[in-house]
Design a protein around this nucleic acid. Structure first.
Length: 256
DNA sequence: AACAAAAGCAACCGCCTAAGG
DNA sequence: CCCTTAGGCGGTTGCTTTTGT
């Protein structure tokens, strides 16, 4: 079967669960060469997977900082509150829960919180009510824009992108985002953050999770795999996403 | 112990959007 | 503008594990 998805793979793509070997290959390849082009990377890394599949695997399981295991009470409440406000915008909700992926939150919602949400909405103060009470007029016509602005103001964490755990030389400075934000929206954001965000989600706690450096063990995985195809300079010039190289010892050196 | 049903979760699919030519 | 391509997102599927009988 030839995959003809938008990722443009030409090689036969295997499906189903990822084997530990495949995980290692992908992890090692990205650690060595960075993410330069999802659709070409599988071939270069010697993986018979679609680019889409590789991206998903990396985003949801392989990148550093992914939290596994049970959701805390605080996590539950955060999800419920933000879901009430944002709806099924799982990636946006995930941005409020460092280390949790949109997929995981989505699954957790359907498995555990959906029922609770229905009960809660009939008995408790809703997020929309909180917004109303702030005396900020949110025109229905404008609400999608307001929501986008809310998302812009989500905590910008060092790892909330495709290359979690990898220093982001290309990360957009927060000033670039705020330049397009109205004062009005800032008011709304501040109000909601004040009402919704517990002290558990302080920056300090984010850092404790996210600023963990690579372990040496991680970095040693398949440091040199004969099956890897090195992305050429041309490739990087065409699609310079997150190029980086390793130093011999223990730190990544990012190059612009 | 064996089976069925339910729950959990990883992965896939298809649509949408942004960027570039 | 229009088209193509790559990336991202949410909905859904289906396999695996757990629980109940």
């Amino acid at each position: 079967m030839v995959n003809t998805s938008s990722y443009g793979e030409k090689m036969p793509a295997s499906r189903g669960f990822w084997s530990p070997e495949e995980d290692q290959k992908l992890k090692a390849y990205i650690k060595r060469y960075g993410i330069w082009n999802w659709c070409r990377m599988p071939e270069a890394a010697g993986l018979a997977r679609s680019g889409k599949s590789c991206r998903l695997r990396w985003m949801n399981y392989l990148r550093l900082g992914i939290k596994r295991g049970n959701f805390s009470q605080e996590d539950d409440e955060t999800i419920l509150k933000w879901h009430e406000l944002l709806g099924n915008r799982w990636s946006a909700i995930a941005a409020k829960l460092p280390g949790r992926t949109d997929n995981e939150i989505k699954n957790y919602w359907h498995a555990h919180l959906k029922k609770r949400s229905k009960i809660n909405t009939s008995s408790s103060t809703t997020a929309s009510e909180i917004v109303k009470s702030s005396e900020v007029e949110v025109n229905k016509k404008d609400s999608p824009r307001i929501q986008d602005l809310l998302l812009c103001d989500a905590p910008i964490l060092p790892n909330m992108d495709a290359t979690e755990g990898i220093p982001m030389s290309t990360q957009m400075p927060i000033n670039d985002i705020s330049s397009s934000r109205t004062d009005r929206a800032v008011e709304i954001v501040q109000h909601i953050e004040k009402n919704f965000c517990s002290s558990e989600t302080s920056d300090q706690n984010y850092l404790s999770i996210w600023e963990q450096p690579f372990s040496f063990q991680d970095m040693c995985i398949l440091e040199t795999d004969p099956g890897f195809m090195v992305p050429t300079t041309t490739m990087w010039l065409q699609e310079p996403m997150y190029p980086y190289v390793y130093l011999d010892t223990s730190y990544d050196l990012w190059i612009d």
